[in-house]
């Protein structure tokens, strides 16, 4: 029996909204420790790695590890019926062929419950090697979202280069070239406005803006976003969910022909 109760159901709704355009049919893996998802997009260019610790839940029971095969666009439709302040309860039997979702509104006392048929999704688990990245940048997630949105006007590829000058985002297209340079900023009193750049060695990589834009759907989950890069490796873009988990996106770089 799997049963989990999340007082702030909105967190789970935001997680679904942050990945449902990138990965459609996913397994939500339930273990005694956490709910997790690891899934590549259909083109095998990006990987989503989500984790939500059992400590995020007011009640968490998982007798046996389960994989709940779900179609995220359908899950997203169900979450449209959840109130902002609702408590969310997930429930599935061990012989899981369906998932119960319940939304409880403490104030009005209403309880909505939905049953989703589960899908058998063959899991292609990937081994993601632990890497000591050469550059690690923490910045306001709203700033990253704005940069990605603005540069999409200029072209479809974003060059991200981290040097001692700072972190530069560049895009070139028919109408010209755009560059946005961010420097380390730990002066502002608001922690969330800080930009910290840890650079062990300079890195310059190119990425498809279409994917970076997908990733910024996770902006509501976290005021800060962490970018990690090493020469010739996929970038990791991490949205921490307080101390409870994260949504991480891995994106393969674009290479010179």
């Amino acid at each position: 029996m799997f049963e989990a109760r999340l007082a702030n159901g909105n967190i789970f709704k935001m997680i679904v909204e942050s990945i449902r355009e990138l990965v459609v049919d996913v397994n939500i893996d339930c273990s005694t420790e956490e709910l997790s998802i690891q899934c590549m997009d259909s083109a095998h260019v990006a990987l989503v790695s989500m984790s939500l610790s059992q400590s995020a839940f007011d009640h968490f029971r998982c007798d046996r590890s389960l994989s709940l095969g779900l179609n995220l666009p359908n899950v997203s439709k169900i979450f449209k019926m959840m109130g902002r302040d609702d408590t969310m309860v997930l429930k599935a039997e061990d012989s899981a062929d369906k998932l119960m979702l319940m939304f409880e509104n403490d104030k009005s006392g209403t309880i909505a419950d939905f049953e989703l048929k589960l899908m058998a999704i063959e899991a292609e688990q990937l081994g993601v090697p632990d890497t000591a990245y050469k550059c690690s940048i923490s910045m306001p997630s709203s700033e990253f979202q704005r940069i990605v949105r603005d540069l999409q006007v200029m072209g479809d590829t974003c060059k991200i280069s981290c040097t001692k000058e700072g972190l530069k985002f560049s895009a070139t297209g028919q109408i010209g070239t755009g560059n946005i340079l961010m420097r380390q900023n730990v002066a502002s009193e608001k922690e969330e406005d800080h930009v910290t750049i840890d650079m062990e060695e300079p890195v310059e990589l190119n990425f498809a803006l279409r994917y970076l834009n997908f990733f910024t759907k996770a902006t509501p989950l976290s005021p800060t976003v962490i970018l990690k890069m090493s020469p010739g490796l996929p970038i990791v873009i991490e949205y921490p969910i307080e101390q409870l988990g994260h949504v991480k996106y891995y994106l393969a770089p674009k290479m010179e022909e």
């Binding site: 990987l47 891995y250 010179e256």
Partner: peptide, 14 residues
């Protein structure tokens, strides 16, 4: 111009 890489070139299937 730039060619999009695949993650399969970096991550191994378990």
């Amino acid at each position: 111009n730039m060619k999009q890489g695949s993650l399969l070139g970096f991550f191994t299937k378990k």
